[in-house]
Simulated scan of single mutants.
Amino acid sequence: MPDRRPGGPRPAPPLVAAVRRLPSPRLTGLGAGLFASAVMLVVGFLDLLLLDGSAVVYGVLFLPVSALTALWVREADLVMAPVIVPIAFTVGIVPISGGEGGFGGQTMAVVTSLAVYAGWLYGGTLVAGLITCVRKARVMTRRRRRVRPGNPDGPAGDGSAAGAGARRH
Rank of each mutant, 00 (worst) to 15 (best):
P2Q: 08
G7N: 13
G7E: 15
G7D: 14
G8N: 15
P9T: 11
P9D: 11
P9V: 11
P11V: 12
P11W: 09
P11Y: 09
P11I: 10
A12F: 10
P13W: 02
P14F: 06
V19C: 12
R21F: 02
P23Y: 04
S24N: 13
S24E: 13
P25E: 12
T28S: 14
L30C: 02
A32G: 03
G33C: 12
L34G: 13
L34H: 05
L34K: 04
F35V: 00
A36N: 06
A36M: 09
V39S: 08
F45N: 09
L46V: 10
L46Q: 12
L46A: 13
L50M: 08
L51I: 01
L51Y: 11
D52S: 10
D52M: 02
G53S: 05
S54K: 02
V56W: 13
V57D: 13
Y58D: 00
Y58R: 01
G59Q: 05
V60Y: 11
V60Q: 12
L61K: 05
P64D: 09
V65R: 00
V65S: 00
A70D: 03
V73F: 01
V73I: 15
V79I: 10
V79G: 15
V85K: 02
I87C: 15
A88R: 02
A88V: 02
T90W: 04
V91W: 01
G92C: 10
G92P: 14
I93H: 03
P95A: 12
P95F: 08
G99S: 08
G99D: 13
G102W: 07
G102E: 08
F103S: 11
Q106D: 12
T107N: 09
M108L: 12
M108K: 04
M108A: 14
V111C: 07
T112L: 06
T112D: 13
S113C: 05
S113F: 03
S113I: 01
A115D: 05
V116H: 00
V116L: 13
V116M: 10
A118Y: 04
A118S: 14
A118R: 01
G119A: 06
L121H: 00
L121Q: 03
Y122T: 01
G123D: 13
T125Q: 03
L126Y: 14
L126Q: 10
L126S: 14
L126W: 14
V127E: 15
T132W: 04
V134C: 08
V134R: 12
A137W: 07
R138W: 08
M140F: 02
M140Q: 07
M140R: 10
R142C: 00
R146T: 11
R148S: 08
G150D: 12
P152M: 03
P155R: 07
D158Y: 07
S160E: 09
A161K: 01
A162L: 15
A164Q: 14
A166I: 04
R167T: 13
R168I: 09
R168E: 08
H169G: 11
